[in-house]
């Protein structure tokens, strides 16, 4: 398991997944959009990619970012601060 990343789930995604964090294994060269598509199919997430923003290691990024072992990845649902 040396190709794992940590996923963080928030708001609706945490509710639908039933947890706030988990480790998953990456395919070589996997990008953020491919990982989300895979997770959405596996867990039947109701939120489509278009309304999420990917974040890697605490910074917003783009969907085509290639993920690395050890990354902390979150798919950020629409925010509601303030």
């Amino acid at each position: 398991m040396n190709n794992t990343v940590t996923l963080r789930y928030f708001a609706q995604l945490a509710e639908q997944r039933g947890c706030h964090t988990e480790q998953v294994e990456l395919h070589p060269g996997q990008r953020a959009e491919e990982l989300y598509r895979q997770l959405q199919q596996r867990y039947r997430f109701s939120l489509d990619q278009e309304i999420l923003r990917p974040a890697v290691n605490g910074v917003y990024t783009t969907w085509d970012q290639e993920l690395q072992a050890g990354d902390e990845i979150a798919f950020i649902p629409p925010v509601a601060g303030g």
């Binding site: 928030f10 509710e15 974040a55 649902p77 629409p78 925010v79 509601a80 601060g81 303030g82």
Partner: peptide, 20 residues
């Protein structure tokens, strides 16, 4: 800002609110 709001209503229901 990655902050999420869960509102609880007088009628007993509750839900995630999209502000933006």
């Amino acid at each position: 800002l990655p902050v999420w709001k869960h509102e609880y209503y007088e009628d007993g229901s509750h839900e995630w609110v999209y502000c933006a």
